[in-house]
Design a protein around this nucleic acid. Structure first.
Lengths: 249, 249
DNA sequence: GCTATTCTCGTACAACGTACTGGAAATAGC
DNA sequence: GCTATTTCCAGTACGTTGTACGAGAATAGC
C-alpha cells in the first residue's frame, strides 16, 4: 500500500483534470479499453466480492489486461473509487423538471439513492472518502437544488440539505443491511444460534448493566406489521427527515 | 494487506472475546504495555497524521516496542480500529440520569458526539466500518435509550434513532470540516486562488450546465450572521432533526 | 516506409499486515 | 538464591498491495 497520503487528506488528483473529458487524442495506438469499462468492472467486482476485493490487479485481470495498463486510464486507485461512486450515481433516474410537489420530489430522490445503495452495498462506506463531485453526482445535486428552490432556505442551507439527505439515506441503508444480515445469519441456524454480534449484545445486556438496551432487544415491535416492510419504515423516517430539514428556521 | 476478508464483510473477531476483560493472568512476565495505552497511541497518531498513518509498525514504534509485540494485545488491525472508536466514545460526558427534558438531553448527546468527532476527524470515516459495539459505545446507546423512553417510539425505533442521530452528526461534521478546509485553503492564498475542488465546481457551473448550483455557489448567505457561527447552524439543524426523528408516526 | 505518438505490461520495489519461533524475562514455589 | 514455569518480546520472513519505470507494440500522419 505504498504512497498513501501521509497526512489527513491525501492530495488526490486535480478534479478538473479528472472530470474533464480528456479529449481522445487522434494519434498513436488506440486504447483497447475505456475508463467507463474499467470503472464498470470495478463496480461489478465490489458488488460481488466487496470493496476490499477491488485491487488494481483484480480489476485488470477482469478485463484481461496487465495490471499496469489500468494506469493509462486512471491515475491511481483513489481516483478509480471516485469514478465508481460517480458511475453508480448515474443510475439515478431523475425527472427532467421538478414536479412542483417538492416533498414528493425529495422522497423520489431519496428512494433512488436508497435503491442504488442497496444495489451497491459498498457505497455507503465509500462515500465519506469522496473528495470531489463527478458529473453524475452534480446532476443529482443540481436537480435537488431545483427541487428545493421553492422552499424557504437560503443557498448554503440548500446545498447542505443534499449532503444531509444523502447522509441520512446512507445511515439508514447501513442499518438496514446490518439488520438483514443479522436476521439472515440467525435464520440460517434455525433461529437457535444467533450471530456473534447479537450474541455479544445479549451477553452484554445479561449482566444487567444496560437495562434499557436489554429491554429494547427483548421487546418485540409494538406494531409488527409496520416494521416488517422495510420500505414503509424508510418512507416514514424519510418523511420526518424531510420535514425536519426543510422546516422554517 | 494480506488477509483482508475476501467477501463483503470480513469475519472479524468474536466480539465476546474482544470486549470481555481477558482477566490478567497472575503468573509469568507482566506485560509492558496495555491495550488502552496502545489504543491511545493509535488515536493520537490518527489525530495528528490521519487514519492512513495508523500502521502497526508506526503504533509500535510510538510506544517503543517491536511491531509484533502489538499482537500480544490486539488480534489484528481491524480490532485496533474498533478499540479506537470505542475509546474515543469514552470521552462522552453523560449525566447519570436523563434530566426529564428529553429534547435537551438528545441535544446534549449530539453536541458531545460532534465535539468528539471534531476532536478526532478520522472518526466519521471510520464509523461505517464498525462491526461491534464496545462498552463505551453501549453506554451511550443505553443513555440514549433511557432518554428516549418517554417518547412515543417502540423499541426498534428507539434503537435506530441512535444510529440515525449518530449518522446525522457524522454527516454534518464531515461537511463542516470539508467546508472549513476549503475556506482555509482559499484564505491561505489571500482569497485569490481557490482550492482545486472549489475551482472545479466553479468551472463545472461556468459551462451553464448547472444553473441552480451556480446560483448557490454565487449567492452569499441570506443571513450571514446565522451561518457564521457553526454551533448555531448545527443546533438549528439538530433541532429539526430531533423533531423529525421523534415525531409521532 | 518512417516517425511521432500513444497504449501495453513485465519487472521491481517499498510498505503493509501478520505467521512463526527461539529466546529473554519475570514470577511462584522452594 | 535457585529453578521451573509461564509469559512476553521481537527478528525474520512471506504474501499482497499500490505504483514507478522503461522497453516493446500498435497506430496515424507523413
Amino acid at each position: 500500500m505504498a504512497r498513501t497520503g501521509s497526512s489527513g487528506r491525501s492530495a488526490g488528483v486535480d478534479p478538473e483534470v479528472l472530470w474533464s473529458q480528456a479529449e481522445r487524442p487522434r494519434r498513436g495506438r488506440p486504447p483497447a479499453h475505456s475508463r467507463a469499462e474499467i470503472t464498470a468492472e470495478a463496480v461489478a467486482l465490489a458488488d460481488t466480492e466487496g470493496l476490499a476485493a477491488v485491487t488494481m490487479r483484480a480489476v485488470a485481470a477482469r478485463i484481461g489486461a496487465g495490471t499496469m495498463s489500468l494506469y493509462s486510464y486512471v491515475p491511481n486507485k483513489e481516483t478509480l473509487l471516485e469514478l465508481m461512486i460517480d458511475q453508480v450515481s448515474g443510475d439515478h433516474r431523475l425527472p427532467p423538471e421538478p414536479s412542483g410537489d417538492w416533498r414528493a420530489d425529495l422522497r423520489g430522490i431519496a428512494r433512488e439513492q436508497r435503491a442504488i445503495m442497496r444495489r451497491h452495498p459498498w457505497l455507503p462506506a465509500a462515500l465519506p472518502a469522496r473528495q470531489t463531485f463527478g458529473p453524475n453526482t452534480l446532476a443529482v445535486v443540481e436537480y435537488t437544488l431545483a427541487v428545493l428552490a421553492p422552499v424557504g432556505l437560503d443557498a448554503p442551507a440548500r446545498l447542505e440539505t443534499f449532503s444531509l439527505l444523502t447522509g441520512f439515506v446512507a445511515s439508514h441503508v447501513t442499518y438496514e443491511l446490518a439488520q438483514e444480515q443479522a436476521t439472515e445469519a440467525a435464520g440460517r441456524t434455525s433461529g437457535e444460534l444467533l450471530d456473534a454480534q447479537t450474541r455479544h449484545l445479549r451477553a452484554a445486556t445479561a449482566t444487567g448493566g444496560y437495562p434499557h438496551l436489554a429491554q429494547a432487544l427483548a421487546a418485540p415491535a409494538a406494531d409488527p406489521a409496520s416494521h416488517t416492510d422495510p420500505e414503509a419504515v424508510f418512507d416514514r423516517l424519510l418523511g420526518r427527515m424531510i420535514n425536519g430539514l426543510t422546516a422554517a428556521p
